[in-house]
Deep mutational scan, measured.
Amino acid sequence: DAPDEFRDPLMDTLMTDPVRLPSGTIMDRSIILRHLLNSPTDPFNRQTLTESMLEPVPELKEQIQAWMR
């Protein structure tokens, strides 16, 4: 099983494109984008959230890719 820090906190699946929300939570980009289609909010604190506020986490993405090899 993947380490917890590699798993999306909402869907508990392996992240492939991790992004940091303004709240500091790291999620998979595809999952948070799907959530934003229904509700333009951070799913953990209900603060306003837009796609432009998502910050890529390239170092975590590299760690996940290395773990998958």
Rank of each mutant, 00 (worst) to 15 (best):
P9V: 04
A66E: 15
W67V: 02
R29G: 02
D4K: 15
E62H: 11
L49E: 00
P58W: 09
R46H: 15
D8N: 03
V19C: 06
P18I: 03
M68R: 08
W67C: 07
M68W: 13
E55D: 09
T25K: 14
E59V: 09
P58S: 09
R20W: 05
S30C: 13
L54A: 02
S23V: 01
P22Y: 05
F6R: 03
H35Q: 06
I26N: 01
D28E: 11
E5A: 13
T16M: 14
M27R: 02
A66T: 10
I32Q: 01
P40L: 12
Q47F: 08
D8R: 03
F6I: 03
E55T: 13
T41E: 08
L36H: 01
M11E: 13
P3I: 05
R69N: 13
R20H: 04
L60C: 07
R20M: 09
M27W: 05
T48P: 15
R7G: 02
M53H: 06
D8G: 03
P58Q: 10
R29N: 04
E51V: 14
I64K: 00
Q47R: 11
R29Q: 04
P56R: 08
W67D: 03
L14F: 08
E62Y: 13
F44L: 05
N38R: 13
A66V: 10
E59M: 11
I32M: 02
L33Q: 08
Q47W: 10
P40M: 10
L37N: 10
D4S: 15
T41S: 09
P58T: 10
T13V: 12
M53D: 12
P40Y: 09
D28N: 05
T25V: 15
L21W: 03
M15G: 03
D1E: 14
D1W: 14
K61T: 07
Q63P: 00
V19F: 04
L60H: 01
R20N: 01
R7P: 02
D17R: 04
R34C: 13
M11F: 11
P56W: 08
M68C: 12
R69D: 12
L49I: 08
I32D: 00
D42T: 03
T13P: 02
R7N: 05
T16W: 12
P22L: 05
V19R: 02
S23K: 02
T41Q: 08
T48A: 14
R29P: 01
Q63G: 05
P58M: 08
P56L: 08
L49V: 07
W67Y: 10
R69W: 11
R29W: 08
P43Q: 02
Q65Y: 13
M53E: 10
L33C: 11
E51P: 13
L14N: 02
R46Q: 14
R69C: 13
S23A: 06
M15E: 00
T13Q: 08
F6M: 07
D12N: 15
L49K: 00
D8A: 03
L37C: 10
M15V: 02
I64H: 00
I26D: 00
H35Y: 12
D1P: 12
P58H: 10
G24Y: 03
E59H: 12
D1I: 14
I31M: 07
N45G: 09
T50Y: 13
M53N: 07
M53W: 06
S23H: 05
L10S: 05
L60E: 01
R7V: 07
E55P: 00
D8F: 04
S39D: 13
R34G: 10
L33P: 00
M15D: 00
S30W: 13
P18H: 03
R29C: 07
F44W: 12
D8W: 03
I31R: 02
S52N: 12
L37R: 14
V19S: 00
L36E: 00
K61W: 10
L10D: 02
T41F: 14
T16S: 11
L37P: 00
T41H: 09
Q47I: 09
D17C: 09
K61C: 08
P18E: 00
R20Q: 07
P43S: 01
E55F: 08
M11L: 10
T25H: 14
E5S: 12
Q47P: 02
E62Q: 13
S23L: 02
P40I: 07
H35A: 06
L14W: 06
F44A: 02
T25L: 13
S52W: 12
T16E: 12
E5N: 13
T48E: 13
M27E: 02
D8P: 03
I32K: 00
T25C: 13
D1F: 14
D28R: 01
I32N: 00
E59P: 05
D1S: 14
L54R: 01
R34L: 13
T41V: 09
L60V: 05
P40N: 13
L10N: 03
E59F: 11
F44Q: 03
R29K: 12
R46G: 15
A2F: 15
S39E: 11
D1G: 13
S30M: 13
P3L: 05
L60Q: 01
M11H: 09
L60F: 06
S39I: 07
W67N: 04
I26M: 03
N38M: 14
D42G: 02
S52G: 12
S52V: 10
Q63K: 15
L54M: 05
L54G: 00
F6E: 01
S39V: 08
P18T: 01
I31Y: 07
L14Y: 06
L60S: 01
P22S: 03
L33K: 08
P58K: 09
M11I: 07
R7H: 07
L49M: 08
P40G: 11
D1V: 14
I64P: 01
A66L: 13
R34P: 00
L14K: 02
G24R: 04
M27V: 08
D42Y: 04
V57K: 03
D42F: 04
Q65F: 14
T50M: 10
T48L: 15
A66M: 15
T41I: 09
K61H: 07
R7W: 09
T50H: 13
P43K: 00
V57Y: 08
I64Y: 03
E59W: 15
F44N: 02
S30K: 13
T25D: 05
L60A: 00
V57T: 05
R20Y: 04
E59D: 12
V57N: 05
L21F: 03
P3A: 05
E59S: 11
N38A: 12
D42I: 03
I32S: 00
D4C: 15
L49A: 00
V57C: 13
P22A: 04
H35W: 15
M27C: 08
P3V: 04
A66F: 11
T50G: 06
K61G: 06
L37H: 11
L33T: 09
D17W: 06
V19T: 04
T41P: 03
D4E: 14
T48H: 15
D12K: 15
L14V: 13
Q65H: 13
P43R: 02
N38H: 14
D4F: 15
I64F: 02
T16V: 13
T41Y: 13
S39L: 07
R46K: 14
P18N: 01
A2W: 13
M15T: 01
T41A: 07
P9M: 07
L14C: 08
S23D: 06
P22N: 01
D8E: 03
S39P: 01
G24M: 05
I32L: 07
S23M: 04
E51C: 09
T16I: 14
M15C: 06
D12P: 03
R7A: 03
Q63T: 09
R34M: 13
D8I: 03
P18Q: 03
I32V: 09
A2K: 05
Q65P: 04
S52T: 11
P58R: 09
T48M: 14
L37K: 14
I31V: 15
D28S: 04
R20F: 04
L36R: 00
N38P: 00
R34Q: 13
D8T: 03
N38Q: 13
P58I: 09
H35C: 10
G24I: 02
D17M: 05
V19P: 02
D12A: 12
E51N: 07
R34N: 11
L60Y: 02
L21H: 00
P9R: 07
M27Y: 05
E5P: 09
D8V: 03
P40K: 14
I31N: 08
M27T: 04
N38Y: 14
T41G: 05
L10G: 02
P43L: 03
F6A: 02
I32E: 00
R46Y: 14
R20A: 05
T41R: 08
P40Q: 14
E62F: 11
T25I: 15
P9T: 04
Q65C: 13
R46S: 14
D4W: 15
M27A: 05
P18D: 02
L10A: 04
D12V: 06
P22E: 01
L10F: 09
V57F: 08
T50A: 09
V57P: 02
L10Y: 10
I64W: 02
V19L: 04
R29E: 02
W67A: 04
T16C: 14
L14E: 01
K61I: 07
T25W: 15
P40D: 10
R34T: 10
L10P: 03
L33M: 13
A2I: 15
F44K: 02
Q47C: 11
D17V: 04
E62P: 01
H35I: 09
P22Q: 03
I64S: 00
Q63C: 10
S30I: 12
V57D: 07
N45F: 07
D12S: 12
E5V: 11
L37Q: 14
E55M: 12
F44I: 06
H35K: 05
S30R: 12
A2E: 07
E59Y: 12
D4H: 15
V57S: 05
S52Q: 13
P9G: 07
D1Y: 14
M27Q: 00
D4N: 14
D28Q: 07
E62K: 14
T50Q: 09
R7Y: 12
T50W: 10
T16N: 10
V57E: 08
P56N: 09
D17Q: 05
R7Q: 05
